[in-house]
Amino acid sequence: MTSIQSYGAAFPTLRLSAQAYRDAWGACAAKGLRRKAFCAFDEDPLTLAISAARNALAGGEANAGDVGALFVGATTWPYEEKPAAASLVTALLGTDAIRTAELRGSRQAGLQALLAAAEYVAAHPDRLALAVAVDAPSAAPDAPYEHALAAGAAAFVVGSRPAIATIAGDTAVTMETFGSRFRRHGEAQIHDLELRVDDDAKSLDAVARVQPKQLYTQLATGGSNELAARAARHFGGEPDGLWPDLGDTGAAGACIALAHSLDTATVGDRILALAVGGGATAVTVEVTAQPKHPAGVTEALRGGRDTDYLSYLKHKRVIGAKGAFA
């Protein structure tokens, strides 16, 4: 048995509203979005990952010396070659005697990191594993799919003793996609040919065909309202409803939604965490105790400081004005 011992989340300081897009472009292409969190000029996925992991470690009784492995899922890092996991180990754990692995390539990466942590603990029941999901995808400012792109992180301490929730099962499918959400080697921004081929819906339908039929209390997708509604039709359960204030946090989305579900769940609830993109990964989580230190995802998303679209472009370094960050 593997269990989530504690968990945490982290979001950037700044927020941008859908109204800011409407004022700048005449419309907001992210249907249902109210506001999103985005990285300021001095924030990036690495700073968010450290904050979320620190919150997860502080939220339980974990001794950093008991952490034997760190698994990180993300599609965006400051470096293409140079292990981001090493920076997390240095900042958080104070030891180099630790296994690390970085998962990339799709929005499934964060949930895959959680599964890798669970599998490590199953093989090493006397150790803990730390799983971190983080992302801050970006696209060209004139691309309609850029409007939804946001940033955030969630982290989980996984161990073998009974704790907050048991990781009770998982299912995965892998599918080739063409033209939807890709980023070529050496590029910083994602692309989408917008061929009107709904690869996410196909991935979701595929995992529904092989996922064991169970009764779920909550669905943790971190995805759009449309994706969450489709998942609810397949699996039942109450969608997380985070999209309007979360936006698209890439590989972190499903794990942030899982943290939110754990915040609000009661003992006995069954949660299906679902990450979709190039296929899908589904993880069943059974709640066994109330968390002593909830991540406070809802409160964190409602916080932050709103800014205008021009300042947003400056922080994203689309336009330059030294010292003019607001």
Rank of each mutant, 00 (worst) to 15 (best):
Q5D: 05
F11A: 08
L16G: 07
S17A: 12
A18H: 09
A20M: 01
A20S: 12
D23T: 09
A27H: 14
K36R: 15
A37F: 00
F38T: 12
A40V: 03
A40P: 00
E43I: 05
L48S: 11
A49V: 01
A52K: 08
A53C: 03
N55I: 00
G60L: 09
G65H: 11
D66W: 08
A74L: 13
Y79Q: 13
E81A: 14
S87F: 11
S87M: 10
L88E: 13
I98R: 07
A109I: 01
L111C: 10
Q112S: 15
A116K: 04
A116V: 02
A122Y: 01
D135S: 09
P137E: 11
P144Q: 09
A148Y: 01
S160D: 07
P162L: 07
A165T: 04
G186C: 02
V197P: 00
Q218C: 09
R233L: 14
F235R: 06
L242I: 07
A251T: 04
A251Q: 04
G253Q: 06
A254I: 01
T264K: 12
I271E: 02
I271D: 04
T281V: 13
T281C: 07
E286G: 10
T288N: 10
K292R: 14
R302D: 14
Y312V: 04
A326D: 14
